[in-house]
């Protein structure tokens, strides 16, 4: 750890980091600039020359089929908020059980969860559709919420975190004091795992927020769509309709605002989490 402030950084590293930052930020800048253009400016003026039509575009976006866009926003918030909360709770319980209990088949259960981490969710969308169709649940809020609740990666993270953050002695003490399984999980382990759970929540929230394939397959009624599927629909109006470019671009811009806000408010927990891990290691 000999790095000192200022003169220690090599110019090459700085350039590479700057390039990386540009690579990430230029598309965002593009969305910002493009959403301020009117439809005829969009394809004719210089790419990064901003214009003055942001408010017009927002008004047009809001007016689309009586504010359907905001309904999509609310749906996404519901899917991501409720889904991530439920998923975090399930992951915490499963991770806690896998870390702190001894039971036959524990190892194979954990291995199964681990292999689940390797299977991309996209592959599961069709089988999940067929399953939920059996229950008559497709094209409902449940069809997107239920599959989001189980997250192998979340369970994996929670197991690691429960093993590191919850000392077995504390659980023993709780047990001696007469706390049952549920009570020692909810009252003792859960608070100790809090910062790890924020990480799981954030991961899952972003994953559901960005999820496209699952709601795309599950939902037929566009009043249930999340923002991703809704915006995609605005672009695919069929060959004989104008694609609603300005609305899609403005909609994309608005849709990243809540994510940025969420990260800014929750990132301090994330930092605590990383620091805690460093001390314990």
């Amino acid at each position: 750890m000999s790095t000192t402030r200022g003169n220690g950084a090599s110019p090459a590293a700085t350039v590479i980091l700057l390039l990386g930052a540009a690579y990430c930020l230029v598309p965002v800048l593009w969305v910002l600039v493009a959403s301020s253009k009117s439809l005829d400016e969009l394809f004719s003026t210089f790419t990064f020359a901003p214009s003055t039509h942001l408010l017009d575009n927002l008004a047009e976006l809001s007016a689309y089929r009586d504010g359907l866009y905001w309904r999509w926003m609310a749906n996404t918030a519901l899917y991501a908020g409720v889904g991530a909360l439920a998923s975090t709770l399930v992951s915490a319980m499963a991770g806690f059980a896998l870390a702190k209990y001894e039971f036959p088949g524990k190892k194979s259960v954990f291995n199964l969860v681990l292999s689940g981490v390797l299977v991309p969710g996209v592959i599961l969308a069709i089988p999940q559709y067929l399953l939920l169709a059996e229950a008559g649940l497709t094209n409902t809020y449940w069809s997107v919420l239920l599959p989001s609740v189980i997250s192998p990666y979340g369970i994996y993270l929670c197991r690691i975190f429960a093993a590191a953050a919850v000392p077995s002695e504390v659980l023993e003490a709780a047990r001696i004091d007469g706390a049952g399984d549920w009570r020692s999980f909810a009252r003792v382990a859960l608070p100790m795992m809090r910062s790890g759970l924020v990480t799981v929540f954030l991961f899952q929230f972003v994953a559901i927020w960005n999820n496209f394939m699952l709601p795309y397959i599950m939902l037929g009624d566009d009043h249930l769509y999340p923002i991703t599927v809704g915006l995609n629909g605005l672009l695919n109006q069929g060959a004989n309709q104008p694609a609603m470019y300005t609305s899609v671009i403005t909609g994309s811009l608005v849709s990243i605002v809540p994510l940025i806000a969420l990260f800014l408010t929750l990132q301090r927990y994330w930092r605590v989490d990383l620091a805690a891990g460093a001390v314990k290691a």
């Binding site: 559709y129 067929l130 169709a133 059996e134 497709t138 037929g220």
Partner: peptide, 14 residues
């Protein structure tokens, strides 16, 4: 595509 999936699943089609 969506319609064909729903037909295969046995429910969910319009």
């Amino acid at each position: 595509t969506k319609l064909l999936t729903a037909i295969k699943a046995g429910s969910g089609a319009p």
